[in-house]
Amino acid sequence: MSGELRLDHAVASGTFSLDGETFDVDNNLWVLGDDDECVVIDAPHSVDAILDLVAGRTVKAILLTHAHDDHCRVAPELRERVVAPIFLHPDDKPLWELTHTDYLWDLDLPDGWELEVAGTRVQTLHTPGHAPGGCCFHVEDLGAVFTGDTLFQGGPGATGRSYSDRPQLEESIRAKLFALPDDTVVHTGHGDDTTIGAERAASADW
């Protein structure tokens, strides 16, 4: 036996740049798997910080929620270090190319696509709005969804910059995320966890 499914978490600090502005940000790092294999969700600022969570396990995939630089900056370097493919929704190609001009990701993330890791299914939910190719990853066995910058504790992600659309983001959340059970834990790209139920209840104030 390789051990039970577990989620490892850390926070990495760096910058986010878009539309000619740069901000300091703290990003959540998420690694899901068992004692033998895992997937990495987003690759923001520090390869070494991610490798500390991987802890020598086989990485099956690098799953990107979207291609803002604070979520994908070290993905190509991480790919080389762990020899694992990068997955990204193709609608985020314009954002990817703002950060990576010499590399592409490896495989596209279609809506509904599933990956198995440690005997557990990770399902892709395409949730455009914060970014055109924004995706969330639902792990039913864990009772959790990884939302990147689509949904935070307190509401939807930001939509004030290029390639974002607030009405589209709200529709994505209502159609895809609010279809999940209320007790589903929301693991975000920045900040604290929340639940689908809490955010559904608060959505009347959007």
Results as ranks from 00 to 15, higher is better:
residue 132 P to K: 10
residue 86 I to W: 03
residue 75 A to R: 00
residue 90 P to H: 08
residue 121 R to P: 05
residue 58 T to K: 11
residue 143 G to S: 14
residue 37 E to Y: 02
residue 15 T to E: 15
residue 6 R to W: 15
residue 192 D to N: 05
residue 102 D to I: 06
residue 84 A to K: 00
residue 54 V to L: 06
residue 202 A to L: 14
residue 18 L to H: 09
residue 109 L to H: 00
residue 40 V to M: 10
residue 36 D to K: 09
residue 67 A to V: 01
residue 24 D to C: 09
residue 4 E to Q: 15
residue 146 F to K: 06
residue 171 E to R: 09
residue 124 T to R: 09
residue 68 H to L: 14
residue 17 S to Q: 11
residue 65 T to S: 13
residue 120 T to R: 01
residue 178 F to V: 06
residue 19 D to C: 08
residue 172 S to R: 03
residue 16 F to D: 09
residue 164 S to C: 11
residue 118 A to D: 03
residue 120 T to G: 08
residue 21 E to W: 10
residue 84 A to Y: 03
residue 51 L to S: 08
residue 203 S to F: 12
residue 48 D to I: 01
residue 171 E to C: 10
residue 148 G to F: 11
residue 56 G to P: 03
residue 24 D to R: 07
residue 201 A to K: 03
residue 26 D to E: 15
residue 66 H to E: 10
residue 11 V to S: 13
residue 170 E to R: 10
residue 74 V to S: 04
residue 122 V to E: 05
residue 116 E to F: 10
residue 134 G to E: 15
residue 124 T to A: 15
residue 50 I to A: 02
residue 182 D to V: 09
residue 143 G to I: 11
residue 14 G to R: 02
residue 8 D to H: 09
residue 198 A to I: 09
residue 20 G to E: 13
residue 83 V to D: 15
residue 5 L to I: 14
residue 159 T to Y: 13
residue 175 A to G: 10
residue 111 D to T: 03
residue 34 D to G: 04
residue 198 A to G: 10
residue 31 V to R: 00
residue 19 D to S: 10
residue 70 D to M: 11
residue 23 F to P: 02
residue 148 G to L: 14
residue 52 D to Q: 10
residue 108 D to H: 05
residue 43 A to L: 06
residue 73 R to T: 07
residue 88 L to S: 01
residue 200 R to P: 00
residue 54 V to S: 03
residue 70 D to A: 13
residue 116 E to D: 11
residue 123 Q to S: 14
residue 140 E to K: 13
residue 48 D to P: 02
residue 100 H to L: 05
residue 92 D to E: 01
residue 85 P to V: 05
residue 65 T to A: 12
residue 14 G to T: 04
residue 63 L to C: 06
residue 40 V to Y: 02
residue 20 G to D: 10
residue 187 H to W: 05
residue 10 A to Q: 07
residue 21 E to D: 14
residue 172 S to W: 08
residue 63 L to M: 12
residue 67 A to C: 12
residue 164 S to L: 08
residue 190 H to Q: 08
